[in-house]
């Protein structure tokens, strides 16, 4: 029993990472209606920028804020330069553009900062929280920031004009233009926000998994799993989904012999497929309502 509780708590701690990434995934899905396969790499690149700033002697929180701002602008620029001109191209062409973006970011990061593993500081320190070895101060801080982010997003989408305009642009772009919403800028804004959230996720994850150009590849898959589990349209669901994936991963690793240890990732993916098959909208997603 004690082992079970231990593993659940450890799962929540890892889950915080996935929750953070899942939130970024949902964010961009809401804005552009696509899964951004380059999202992990965008977050990685942002984290390197933060690392560089900190190495140059910029205080942590200043570097944090600067990185979020730079990432936001970067996201908008990527949308304007690369995706906006091909807005009418088939979906698969967009997927290919994501892939191109991904390889460019990984390769460039490796070229500038090389492929060696780097440590990344945590503003919360790595001491165990309340003397318990299960969860560190950093992991608790990470959960805290994720929750703050989630609440901020909720208020933004629910109660602001721009938030409503962004929802409308994603829901029915043609109609949105007909009420005067500048849809193409809403999409760019969505990219900027997703890049900024990704940057936060990257900076929170890096102290745990260490910084290197491929750091996000595996995590993004867990992030997708969390997002899908919670429902791709629900930010709150995504965060919860991320925590759930962390818990399931840890429990499977502990209690299922051999396979659990070696196939952690596979198990996470089986969850995705299972959820998708049984409940395509995810646990908390809104099913699309449409009259034929």
């Amino acid at each position: 029993m004690e082992l079970l509780i231990q593993q659940v708590v450890a799962g929540i701690a890892t889950g915080a990472i996935y929750a953070c990434v899942a939130l970024a995934v949902v964010m961009i899905y809401t804005a552009i209606g696509h899964l951004n396969f380059a999202q992990g790499e965008m977050a990685m690149f942002s984290t390197f920028i933060a690392w560089q700033l900190i190495t140059w002697g910029v205080p942590y929180w200043v570097a944090f804020a600067l990185t979020v701002a730079i990432s936001f602008v970067g996201g908008v620029v990527i949308e304007r330069l690369i995706f906006h001109p091909l807005a009418n191209a088939p979906i698969l062409s967009h997927v290919v553009l994501f892939i191109a973006l991904l390889t460019i970011l990984t390769s460039t990061a490796g070229f500038i900062w090389d492929f060696s593993i780097k440590t990344f500081p945590s503003p919360f320190g790595s001491a165990p929280l309340f003397g318990s070895s299960l969860i560190s101060a950093h992991q608790a801080g990470m959960m805290g920031i994720t929750l703050v982010l989630l609440i901020a997003l909720f208020f933004f989408f629910r109660f602001t004009r721009v938030g409503l305009a962004m929802r409308a642009a994603a829901d029915n772009p043609v109609s949105a233009r007909l009420v005067g919403v500048r849809v193409s800028w809403m999409i760019a804004l969505g990219w900027g926000m997703a890049a900024a959230i990704g940057a936060v996720a990257g900076m929170l994850v890096a102290p745990v998994v260490f910084l290197e150009p491929n750091m996000m590849l595996g995590i993004l898959v867990y992030g997708f799993a969390g997002a899908v589990l919670g429902g791709l349209t629900s930010p709150g669901g995504a965060v919860l989904g991320g925590f759930l994936v962390g818990i399931i991963e840890n429990l499977a690793g502990t209690f299922i012999p051999v396979i659990g240890g070696e196939l952690k990732l596979t198990i996470a993916l089986c969850i995705i497929v299972l959820v998708l098959v049984l409940k395509p909208g995810g646990l908390f997603g809104r099913a699309t309502v449409q009259r034929v």
Partner: peptide, 14 residues
């Protein structure tokens, strides 16, 4: 041109 996923009032606000 209904915004299917938003509420009636939000549609009017839009």
């Amino acid at each position: 041109g209904t915004f299917l996923r938003q509420t009636v009032e939000e549609n009017l606000q839009l």
